[in-house]
Measured scan of single mutants.
Amino acid sequence: CHSECLGNCSQPDDPTKCVACRNFYLDGRCVETCPPPYYHFQDWRCVNFSFCQDLHHKCKNSRRQGCHQYVIHNNKCIPECPSGYTMNSSNLLCTPCLGPCPKVCHLLEGEKTIDSVTSAQELRGCTVINGSLIINIRGGNNLAAELEANLGLIEEISGYLKIRRSYALVSLSFFRKLRLIRGETLEIGNYSFYALDNQNLRQLWDWSKHNLTITQGKLFFHYNPKLCLSEIHKMEEVSGTKGRQERNDIALKTNGDQASCENELLKFSYIRTSFDKILLRWEPYWPPDFRDLLGFMLFYKEAPYQNVTEFDGQDACGSNSWTVVDIDPPLRSNDPKSQNHPGWLMRGLKPWTQYAIFVKTLVTFSDERRTYGAKSDIIYVQTDATNPSVPLDPISVSNSSSQIILKWKPPSDPNGNITHYLVFWERQAEDSELFELDYCLKGLKLPSRTWSPPFESEDSQKHNQSEYEDSAGECCSCPKTDSQILKELEESSFRKTFEDYLHNVVFVPRKT
């Protein structure tokens, strides 16, 4: 048989008469490798580009789960590009990614509803959504962080984005990388972005840091009482949809009607710091009717980097990364020049730590249904340095008659930039024990000054392991946590139920 035959053949030295091919099969003959313009397919066939392209389009058009959109890589027609490569849609070739590779997620039936953290986790790592997304989240724990972890990498949506009755959302900033909504599939009414009845939605994105392009379709905003109209108009300008909307697409009466839409800028007039305090004062603000001013709200939190936005980490279910302080308005003076500047002394802060701070007014709604208010920009203030805590785990070892090696770990709280350490030492008198000992005694162990690591005695271990207080009263049991108490109650309830079950099964009433 021919060298490319495997198993047997019907005619000697003829690659077209093989029972099976050793390498690849091409047009009725066995070959060692697939010549151009053919590609290896499933490690035994040679196919042309049209064959591989037909497989790709067949799966793409069917949208069946589990099928493969075949691509070409290293002269092979394979189910998908290997790690580190992405497909070129024009020629199906796998090309190296520039940075992290995109991950295209194809949605069944063309859309997916995100109504819980669990459903959001199914899209973790996706960068391109081939379909439409509907966000409908009523509640949950730590929602802002969970949504950002699972949806934060999405850069492109081919269909539309719909935010509907998501009472738990305060902001859409968890879509931190969303840059493009194509609108290839539109919501009824030709809408590519749809926001309806979101009672706590206050911000779409921080438009000073976020760009969003909507290729096709219109915007729809109705019944978002805490979303200011200025935020919607800003989205029109940034996304390129200005002029597409009709009169009733953006409701003037049901958007922002319960919001404090600040239209003035508060400026800080005085800032002073110490290692654990920050004193702030800002310019006074009074609405047209000074009785509408209820006070100020001061927001602050630790910020290692200057990239904080107002609604980071917030949701309507209680999660809030900001510390909020309510401040009463100052006494009002008739003389504008003698107006008191409101302020606040922030206490209990960490030394040498940068804080993000902003302040906003708290006002009631005027009778004319106009909203007044003022808010400052987010500023960054760093507390002063102070003395560091003591170095940890000092170790001293003498390696000769004239040297001592000293080692330690950095302090747990540096409280500033540590530039150097101060080492103090003092000579001590020799131990009298060394002169009084009889060095001729056998088995004498000389006193040693070398360091030995501390260890816990058996008594201390027994005390720590004991669940009861000892007789001397030195140790006591740790208080039980809520989960331990709940577990004990469940076990007790189970024992009672099981005992009742045994009584009912074992003891049967005697027939009379």
Rank of each mutant, 00 (worst) to 15 (best):
110 G>C: 07
114 I>D: 00
116 S>H: 08
116 S>K: 14
118 T>K: 11
119 S>F: 04
121 Q>F: 10
124 R>Q: 03
126 C>S: 01
130 N>E: 08
131 G>M: 01
134 I>A: 08
138 R>Q: 15
138 R>A: 08
139 G>C: 08
143 L>N: 08
144 A>Q: 10
145 A>G: 09
150 N>L: 04
154 I>K: 00
156 E>G: 04
161 L>T: 02
164 R>P: 05
166 S>Y: 02
169 L>S: 10
169 L>W: 01
171 S>I: 02
174 F>L: 09
179 R>G: 11
183 G>N: 01
185 T>P: 09
186 L>S: 11
190 N>Y: 07
191 Y>W: 06
195 A>G: 12
198 N>R: 00
200 N>P: 02
201 L>R: 00
203 Q>I: 05
205 W>P: 01
209 K>N: 11
210 H>Y: 15
211 N>R: 10
214 I>L: 09
214 I>V: 14
222 H>E: 11
224 N>M: 07
233 H>R: 05
237 E>P: 02
237 E>N: 14
241 T>V: 08
241 T>N: 11
246 E>Q: 15
248 N>L: 10
251 A>Q: 11
255 N>V: 03
256 G>H: 03
256 G>R: 05
258 Q>D: 08
260 S>P: 09
262 E>P: 06
262 E>R: 09
263 N>G: 15
264 E>Q: 11
266 L>V: 03
270 Y>T: 07
280 L>I: 05
281 R>H: 09
283 E>K: 06
289 D>Q: 03
296 F>L: 03
298 L>R: 00
302 E>A: 14
304 P>K: 14
307 N>R: 01
312 D>G: 10
313 G>I: 13
318 G>Q: 04
327 I>K: 02
333 S>I: 05
334 N>W: 06
334 N>R: 14
335 D>Y: 15
341 H>S: 13
345 L>C: 05
352 W>P: 00
353 T>Y: 10
358 F>A: 15
359 V>S: 01
379 I>P: 00
383 T>A: 02
385 A>R: 12
390 V>T: 13
391 P>M: 05
392 L>N: 06
393 D>E: 07
394 P>L: 12
394 P>I: 11
402 S>C: 03
405 I>Q: 09
406 L>F: 13
